[in-house]
């Protein structure tokens, strides 16, 4: 109880909802919901009831089970894509900030270039090249995340580089890599966490959007975006098909945003201002 009350309302809501989704996703991927996810024409388009809490879809699949299975795709792809982007972008940002020079210039130009491509478009093109599917989706979203993290980290680290403790470290003959990872990284870790949460919320919207236009996760894997796309033409017959996946998507995005918000509030409370 004590530890729980330390969290803000936003964090508690966001954390709880994401945990539920993750557990649901794991349960679904372990196969516990296979019966609900299976196609069964005899039970199609049933309204929400005690047997099917969120009703069934046009192929007789249980919407709640599909949402759980979709959570695995949405969260899995969203988080993986962002982490992949961060894993490449953070070291790039760190090293270019600590090292400077031509490489730094090239990397930031490359970032500019990626930024110049509208993100959704980039994903569409990549999917066209690589063929649709979860891996492509992760890659397409990750590519756009690389410069996001590289730029964030580089910008923050450049301002840190002028600070006196970096001079002291250099006086101690620390290598560029040591300065980057030992001195710079811990100082931008909080911002990175915030950015990861924000990017994750963007990534799950991107994933659902790609699935919506048919370029994301492919059947038989469930995806909220595709559920919405499938449900669209049934909206007046079976409004629950639009309402539930849409709400799940919205709440997941909201959760990530709330967590990002709360972390950034903590971060700014606890740490002396970087520009102090």
């Amino acid at each position: 109880m004590n530890t729980l009350t330390r969290f803000s309302r936003g964090e508690r809501f966001g954390g709880l909802f994401l945990t539920i989704l993750m557990i649901a996703g794991i349960i679904a991927s372990l196969g516990f919901l296979d019966d609900g996810v299976a196609i069964d024409i005899s039970r199609r388009l049933l309204a929400p009831s005690s047997a099917h809490w969120m009703g069934t879809d046009a192929l007789g699949r249980d919407v709640l089970s599909l949402i759980c299975a979709g959570a695995a795709s949405s969260l899995g792809i969203g988080i993986l894509a962002v982490l992949l982007g961060a894993a490449v972008g953070i070291p790039l940002g760190l090293v270019t900030a600590a090292k400077g020079g031509l490489i730094s210039e090239a990397v930031s130009r490359g970032g500019d270039l990626v930024f110049a491509f509208p993100s959704l478009l980039l994903a569409v093109l990549l999917t066209a090249v690589l063929g649709p599917g979860a891996k492509t989706t992760i890659l397409a979203i990750a590519v756009f995340n690389v410069p996001v993290f590289a730029r964030l980290v580089r910008g923050q680290c450049l301002s840190l580089m002028s600070r006196d403790f970096i001079l002291s470290a250099r006086m101690s003959n620390r290598s560029t890599a040591a300065i980057a990872f030992d001195h710079l990284l811990p100082n931008v870790a909080g911002l990175i966490v915030i950015q990861i949460a924000l990017q994750a919320s963007l990534a799950i919207v991107a994933e659902s959007g790609l699935s919506y236009v048919g370029l994301g996760v492919q059947p038989p894997f469930a995806s909220w975006g595709r559920m919405l796309a499938d449900a669209q033409s049934l909206v007046s017959v079976a409004p629950w098909l639009v309402a539930f996946p849409g709400s799940a998507l919205m709440l997941a995005v909201l959760s990530f945003n709330l967590i990002a918000d709360a972390v950034s509030r903590r971060w700014s409370d606890r740490t002396p201002r970087l520009d102090a």
Binding site: R163, D164, F165, L167, T271, A276
Partner: peptide, 12 residues
């Protein structure tokens, strides 16, 4: 250095 805030890495 001059600034006691910036001369120590706050994370160390």
């Amino acid at each position: 250095f001059q600034d006691p805030v910036s001369s120590l890495n706050p994370r160390h």
